[in-house]
Structure formats: structure tokens, C-alpha cells
């Protein structure tokens, strides 16, 4: 009896999670896959025809937006690393007893809804807004200068909205470094820059690695930032999918695009993980 229970226990424990996955991940995925292979329209209904051409057409029609999304996502991720690392570094090594306070301050804006925050960015960056207005008034910027609607605005929005997702994992990695290990490097004739390059950076890389995963994927598939801060020339694939679902009601194309995006991101993430698995990252850096 107790033996049976012991053998069953792991399966019972995994049951709630497994059911959850089945219900909210596997089922929608299958529904969507089937939807992407159907044909028809919203009025007359859709029927499954196994029409793979939808994929070919979707990629053909929207490859610009797809490519743009990946590009914006990548640029935003790189900008995030550059911005987040010093912040995380400072909190981890100079935060003293106020580390928790600083982290809280960093997260404070994110208690406000994602969409509201992005809209307030729009207010800030608008042509006669609190930033550009005065600069234009004193003649530092031309009257035609604008930020909204440019790729810069969209990428800046992405960076702003995903900042904590990069800062936190990097902070955790840095925080875990034993300060004695850094001292040991200094003791063994490494100047501060070398100690950073040879010890701090490699030990922080797992955090950066996690941060990249947590920001690149949602940033590439984001549609709020380009919708609120961008223009027709900055349309990202997330927006296209949203429009296909809600405006055009072309469900097969929307589903097909979702799958393409997912596939591209998965391939990207796996390639990245393969090429820069944390273990190997550190070995390379230690050389």
C-alpha cells in the first residue's frame, strides 16, 4: 500500500501542473494549429482544409513586420543589457543595507498597468510635450522634430517596459558573487578592470542569459509599444496578428502568423542557448 503510494506520489504531484498545461497550453495550441489550416470567412464560417498555403502567404505578406519585430526586439535587448547591468551592479555592490529599497524603487512604476505606462510615455514624448516643447521653444530642436512614430520611440518604449526583467536576474547573479572572490582576483595581481572582465562578468553571465530570454521574447512579440508609440512604418508582428484577429477577422492568417513567430523565437532561443549555454559562457570568459 505504502509502496504503491510512494510510486504514485510523483505523478500525483505533477497532476495539477500537468492538467493546467494541458488545458491552457496544449488545447489552445492545437485549436490554433487547426485554425491556421482552415479556410472560409467570418460570415460563412471556417472549415478545415489543411491549407498550408496560408503560411506561405502570411510569411510573404508580413515578412517585413516579422523581421522588424526581431530587429526591434534584439536592439531593445542589447540596450537593456547596457542599461540594466550598471544599475544591477550598483545595487548589488554599493546598495549596502538599502538594496531592497532600491529594488523596490526600480519596480515602483511597474505597479501601474503596462498600457497606461506606455500611454503616459506618449504624453511625455509628444511633439509639444514636456520634453520636446521646451527644447523647441528655446530653438534647440527644429519645429519639425518629433520622436513619436519613430523606431526610436518604439524601442525606447520596449526598453522602458522590460527594464526590470533584465535588472532583476542580473542583480541576482551579481548579488550571489562572494566579494572575497573578487578580492582574491585583486590579490592575484588583477587590476579592477581585469577583475571585472575575468571574474565579475563571467559570474554575472548566467543572469544576463536569463535576462535576455525574459526580455527578447516578449519584446519581439509586443504590440502595445508600437501601437501606442509608433506609426505605420514601425508596425510589429504582434500588431499584425492582433489586427488580423480583431479587425480583419482573418483567423487562419492570424493563427499562422502566431505559429511562425513562435517557431522563429523558439529557434532563436534554442540557437542562443546552444551557442551560449551558461556553462560554456563561463568557460569561454575564463580563458
Amino acid at each position: 500500500m505504502s509502496r504503491l503510494r510512494r510510486n504514485l506520489a510523483p505523478y500525483l504531484l505533477v497532476l495539477p501542473g500537468g492538467l493546467w498545461l494541458l488545458l491552457f497550453f496544449a488545447v489552445p495550441m492545437i485549436t490554433m494549429l487547426s485554425l491556421s489550416l482552415q479556410q472560409g470567412d467570418i460570415v460563412n464560417g471556417y472549415a478545415f482544409t489543411g491549407h498550408w498555403q496560408t503560411y506561405v502567404d502570411a510569411i510573404g505578406n508580413y515578412r517585413t513586420q516579422l523581421f522588424r519585430s526581431l530587429l526591434y526586439g534584439a536592439i531593445a535587448t542589447i540596450a537593456l543589457i547596457v542599461l540594466a547591468f550598471p544599475v544591477a551592479y550598483w545595487i548589488a555592490f554599493y546598495g549596502g543595507r538599502r538594496k531592497a529599497t532600491y529594488l523596490f524603487l526600480l519596480l515602483l512604476p511597474f505597479f501601474v498597468s503596462f498600457v497606461l505606462r506606455t500611454i503616459s510615455w506618449r504624453q511625455i514624448l509628444t511633439d509639444e510635450g514636456p520634453v520636446l516643447g521646451p527644447l523647441k521653444d528655446i530653438g534647440l530642436l527644429g519645429d519639425s522634430f518629433h520622436v513619436l512614430g519613430t523606431p526610436f520611440a518604439v524601442i525606447a518604449g520596449l526598453v522602458y517596459n522590460f527594464l526590470p526583467f533584465m535588472v532583476l536576474p542580473v542583480y541576482v547573479a551579481l548579488e550571489r558573487i562572494d566579494p572575497r572572490v573578487i578580492e582574491a582576483a585583486r590579490d592575484l595581481y588583477a587590476d579592477p578592470a581585469t577583475a571585472f572582465r575575468k571574474v565579475i562578468l563571467p559570474l554575472a553571465l548566467p543572469g544576463v542569459f536569463a535576462g535576455v530570454l525574459m526580455t527578447f521574447v516578449p519584446a519581439s512579440s509586443d504590440y502595445v509599444n508600437s501601437a501606442v508609440l509608433g506609426s505605420s512604418s514601425t508596425t510589429m508582428i504582434g500588431q499584425v496578428i492582433q489586427a488580423q484577429y480583431l479587425a480583419t477577422a482573418d483567423y487562419p492568417t492570424a493563427s499562422a502568423l502566431s505559429f511562425v513567430l513562435m517557431a522563429v523565437l523558439l529557434i532563436g532561443v534554442f540557437t542562443y542557448a546552444r551557442a551560449l549555454g551558461t556553462e560554456d559562457v563561463m568557460k569561454v570568459a575564463a580563458r
Binding site: 572575497r180 578580492e183 582574491a184 590579490d187 592575484l188 595581481y189 571574474v199 559570474l203 570568459a285 575564463a286
Partner: peptide
């Protein structure tokens, strides 16, 4: 004078080995 400019080496109480190196 910075530690890296001193010709002394320390064996730390907690070893402080570089965890990412062989």
C-alpha cells in the same frame, strides 16, 4: 597602494576560489 600592486598573496579563510574556473 592597491592589492594588485603588492607582492603579497593571501589564502582566504573561505578559500574564495574562482567558481567558474578549473
Amino acid at each position: 597602494v592597491a592589492p594588485n600592486k603588492r607582492d603579497v598573496n593571501m589564502v582566504f579563510q573561505s578559500y574564495a576560489l574562482f567558481p567558474h574556473m578549473s
